[in-house]
């Protein structure tokens, strides 16, 4: 088992013929991901990376029956692309793109929830289930099939957590980047629920950062609902207040969203804290080793 994606997942890539989509789709295919085709309006009927290209998601849905959409279109077009995938009822939509306007996301998120679909991202590395499917931009080589589920707001921090859990031999069941934006399609809680119900996952690593209250909300949820051990690292302990630290969502506003507050709330709720970035793997080892 794993969560969200596996070797059966039929992936449609939106913005398929663009340079980023091409680079990452190539690597996903090489990893063994079942990419069934792509969408680029105006290029329908051609092939790209030996896969069929369609003018619309609706056309692609009819011909290839994808159950996941992976979006690489530029930020101004993400709202349209996500809603187009949703309109065709694609149940898992992953948006990699950074820089989507927040008001676009308010509308998209509300619509996705109404339709009962699932959106991951935007501004995220995607999802990987090691040795099965890679829907995103993460380096496949650092992953190893195993028993730790990883959820993170940051791409490169996910890679650190992956590498440490791979080096110690634990490996990963699945890894999900939920993205660094203030209005993410899915929350820590959504992913915690899935990992908690996944037989293969023995422990969950949650990599958070300053800004908002997603980690605090997750702490409450974990306390009441998650039976598996959760290990957490929170980035931004040295971040100043009122400054956006790269990610649109990483800002301490009105004294709220500090790393210290998040860490103490997580500790109170029984979550194991990795005291630094270097201790994620070690903390997992202490808990389930």
């Amino acid at each position: 088992m794993s969560i969200l994606v596996n070797d059966q997942t039929r992936v449609l890539v939106q913005g398929f013929t663009g340079s980023q989509a091409t680079l990452h789709s190539e690597q996903s295919i090489e990893y063994g991901t079942n990419i069934v085709g792509g969408v680029t309006p105006g290029k329908g009927g051609t092939t790209h990376l030996n896969k069929p290209v369609f003018n619309s998601v609706a056309d692609a849905a009819k011909a290839e029956e994808p159950n996941a959409a992976l979006i690489f279109v530029p930020a101004p077009f993400c709202k349209d692309s996500i809603l187009e995938a949703a309109d065709s009822g694609i149940e898992l939509i992953i948006c990699i793109t950074e820089g989507v306007p927040t008001l676009d996301m308010l509308i998209v998120k509300k619509k996705i929830d109404e339709l009962g679909l699932r959106l991951i991202g935007p501004n995220c590395p995607g999802i990987i289930t090691p040795d099965e499917a890679k829907l995103g931009i993460m380096p496949g080589s650092i992953h190893k099939k195993g028993k730790v589920g990883i959820i993170s707001r940051s791409g490169t921090l996910t890679y650190e957590a992956v590498k440490q859990t791979t080096d110690l031999g634990f490996g990963q069941s699945s890894c999900v980047g939920i993205g660094g934006d203030p209005i993410p399609g899915s929350s820590f809680i959504d992913m915690l629920e899935l990992f908690n119900g996944d037989d293969e996952t023995e422990a969950i690593v949650m990599v958070g950062e300053i800004g908002g209250s997603a980690e605090e909300d997750a702490a409450d949820y974990i306390k009441d609902n998650v039976s598996k051990p959760v290990i957490s690292y929170i980035a931004g302990q040295t971040a100043p207040a009122g400054k956006r630290m790269g990610h649109a969502g990483a800002i301490i506003a009105g004294g709220k969203g500090t790393a210290a507050d998040k860490i103490s709330k997580l500790q109170e709720s029984g979550i194991h804290i990795a005291e630094s970035l270097l201790h994620i793997g070690e903390t997992v080892k202490k808990v389930i080793g």
């Binding site: 921090l157 950062e209 931004g236 971040a239």
Partner: peptide, 22 residues
């Protein structure tokens, strides 16, 4: 990466140093 940049600052602090920037 923004997350790793914050993590790097934190790591410097962890070893007793002080980051000049993100």
């Amino acid at each position: 990466g923004a997350g790793l940049a914050m993590g790097t600052m934190d790591t410097i602090k962890y070893f007793g140093g002080a980051p000049a920037n993100f």
